[in-house]
Simulated scan of single mutants.
Amino acid sequence: MILKSLIAEFEHEVDSTRKLLQAVPEKDIDYKPAEISWTMGELAQHIATIYYWYVGTLTEDVYDLAADTLERGAPGDIKATLNLFEKNVEMARSALQAATEESLQHHWTMKVGDRIVLGPLPRGVVARSFLFNHVYHHRGEMIVYLRATGNKVPGLYGPTYEDNPGR
């Protein structure tokens, strides 16, 4: 039951993430709201990268970020980021569809080299927090970036203010 819900949510939210990434304009790709912030391009690339982590999360008991490499392309190239997103979504979808209710109960750990950075936790908890909620958090940031640069925000859960000003 949990797995079916995760798959349905994944499919619905992938479309929303795609709309948001497609709204990132090349002209503002280097915008960042503060010195310590990512650029809009880096943030978009990070969102696309999270989908890559589904495979390691759903298929490995211990996922070592230091041992994993992913060719991301330049963060200033939104077309490359969109291609990365689509490729990662397909891999994430396959990993999610291959999971089982039982596998979601198995403990999972993330490390960077010898240092444990997350877990051990049940894989289903990690899927919800590290994958799903992580994407939602960064999508919220991207909405702020888009609005701060005067760009239109696509409706993810219905019309936006821009679609219906002065409601």
Rank of each mutant, 00 (worst) to 15 (best):
A23K: 06
E101K: 09
F132R: 10
Y136L: 14
D15C: 02
A67N: 06
A48V: 05
G150N: 07
Y157S: 08
K152M: 09
T81L: 05
V62S: 04
Q105K: 15
E35I: 02
T59W: 03
P159L: 05
F10W: 11
V24Q: 07
A67F: 01
T49Y: 11
V126W: 03
G150E: 09
D28A: 14
T81Q: 04
K111S: 11
D114Y: 03
A34M: 10
T59I: 01
H137N: 10
V144G: 10
A48N: 03
K79C: 00
T49F: 12
K32G: 08
D77G: 01
D77C: 02
K32P: 11
I116F: 06
E11M: 02
S129D: 08
A48W: 03
I78C: 01
K19R: 15
D163K: 08
V153A: 11
L3P: 15
Y63T: 12
K87P: 00
A99M: 12
R123I: 08
A80T: 03
S129T: 07
Y136M: 15
L70E: 10
V62H: 02
V126N: 07
G113H: 13
P165F: 11
E90T: 13
A95K: 13
V14F: 09
Y31S: 08
E141C: 00
K111I: 05
H137G: 01
L65G: 13
Y161M: 05
T69P: 00
P154V: 06
G113T: 12
G119P: 10
Q105W: 02
V112G: 00
M110V: 09
G119V: 04
T17G: 03
R167E: 15
M91W: 03
S129M: 11
H138D: 08
D28N: 15
P33H: 06
W108G: 06
G113Q: 09
W108A: 09
E26V: 02
M40H: 04
L21G: 07
W108Q: 04
D15K: 14
G41H: 05
E86V: 01
A8L: 06
R147N: 09
H134K: 08
D61C: 02
G124I: 05
Q45I: 01
A95C: 13
E90Y: 00
A44D: 02
G155K: 06
N88T: 07
L84F: 02
S37E: 09
A8E: 12
A34K: 10
V153S: 09
W108D: 05
R147L: 05
L65C: 02
G41E: 06
D61Q: 13
L82S: 00
R93I: 08
P75G: 03
I143R: 12
T57S: 12
V14A: 11
M91G: 02
K19P: 01
E71M: 01
A44Y: 04
A67M: 02
G119T: 08
R18K: 13
F130W: 10
N133E: 14
R18T: 08
T57Q: 07
N88H: 12
S37T: 00
P25N: 04
N88E: 12
F130G: 01
V125A: 14
E101I: 10
V117N: 11
R93P: 03
M110Y: 12
D28T: 10
R139K: 15
E71G: 00
E86F: 03
D61I: 00
G76C: 00
Y136C: 04
L82V: 00
